[in-house]
């Protein structure tokens, strides 16, 4: 009886304020989509950091035979120069920073190159001599790249010191900024959602003042009086959350997995499973929104 009664009251309330209900659904939908987008961007950033920061190495490219760099006027790096560099890398001064040093000779580079571009027709024409030897330096702390870079930039026989992080960092920065923008928009939209849900519940409570007045008079408990309003808000917000999860899922599925992954291949992308990771958070936010709004409103409108 209780449950059935409460459900019918809820249905009544939702239908009575149909346009308000729809607007609550839409506002939570949009705001949670922004929240979710911000969350997904963060997941993407984390994934890229995880993927890359571990693998990130500082590459010290040795001079090839035909370099224009001022440090390479002496032509190809000699065995002595290479040995000196290795010693310096393994010296005590750099020990706290350097985790591991790996020397990639021209032949190694050639093997790796052929492996990587095995399917490309143009790779066939490349010979080992066209490639260059390098030291691959794994750092204890990837943030400390500058120390190694300073030590080797400008040294004779070194064409270039390159930190792979420099390639990724701008991308991560862009993503971070977008995530911030999304979070900012989300905050504004969430505020709008709270205000709208508050108004909706208030209207709903006012339009049913007669009923709630009688309920109080005959001794219905506070919870019983307030529950339908709370659930109304919660249901509308939950539908909004479900829509946003669906929206994000389709977004990731078709924009990221199908399109972006095909266009820009060097990045590992998040997949639709990431959407499922943030879906519970969105749901909790939605229900939290509704709960906060109803507590604020109902304590005023349905007092004993």
């Amino acid at each position: 009886m209780r449950l059935q009664f409460i459900l019918s009251e809820i249905g009544l309330g939702l239908r009575r304020n149909l346009s308000m209900t729809i607007s609550v659904v839409l506002v939570t939908f949009v705001s949670l989509t922004f929240v979710g987008a911000a969350g997904l961007l963060q997941l993407q950033i984390d994934q890229m950091k995880d993927d890359w920061y571990d693998k990130v190495e500082v590459s010290i490219f040795l001079c090839p035979s035909d370099s224009d760099a001022p440090t390479c006027v002496g032509g190809e790096a000699t065995a002595d120069q290479t040995e000196a560099l290795r010693e310096q890398l393994e010296s005590e001064a750099l020990e706290p920073y350097v985790e591991q040093v790996f020397y990639e000779s021209k032949d190694d580079a050639y093997v790796a190159f052929q492996e990587r571009f095995a399917d490309e027709w143009w790779a066939q024409g490349v010979t080992a001599d066209q490639l260059q030897a390098s030291f691959r330096v794994a750092l204890v702390d990837p943030e400390q790249y500058q120390v190694v870079s300073d030590a080797f930039t400008g040294v004779t026989g070194v064409e270039e010191v390159r930190d792979q992080r420099q390639v990724i960092e701008p991308l991560i920065l862009v993503l971070n900024r977008s995530s911030l923008v999304a979070a900012g928009l989300a905050a504004v939209m969430l505020l709008a959602a709270v205000l709208l849900i508050t108004t909706t519940i208030r209207l709903s409570a006012m339009s049913r003042r007669r009923e709630t007045g009688i309920m109080r008079l005959v001794g219905a408990s506070n919870l019983f009086i307030q529950l339908p309003f709370m659930l109304e808000g919660a249901i509308a917000a939950t539908i909004g959350a479900a829509l946003s999860v669906a929206g994000l899922w389709f977004g990731v599925r078709y924009l990221v997995e199908d399109w972006l992954a095909g266009e820009v291949q060097f990045v590992q992308y998040i997949g639709t499973d990431a959407v499922w990771t943030i879906a519970p958070i969105l749901l909790v936010v939605a229900i939290g929104l509704a709960a906060v709004s109803s507590v604020v409103t109902l304590s005023r409108y349905t007092k004993v």
Partner: peptide, 18 residues
């Protein structure tokens, strides 16, 4: 308070029906 009110019936001049 609700339990108190369950022991009290109240009738008004304006009926207050739904």
């Amino acid at each position: 308070v609700p339990h108190l009110r369950r022991q009290i019936g109240a009738v008004f001049q304006d009926f207050r029906l739904l």
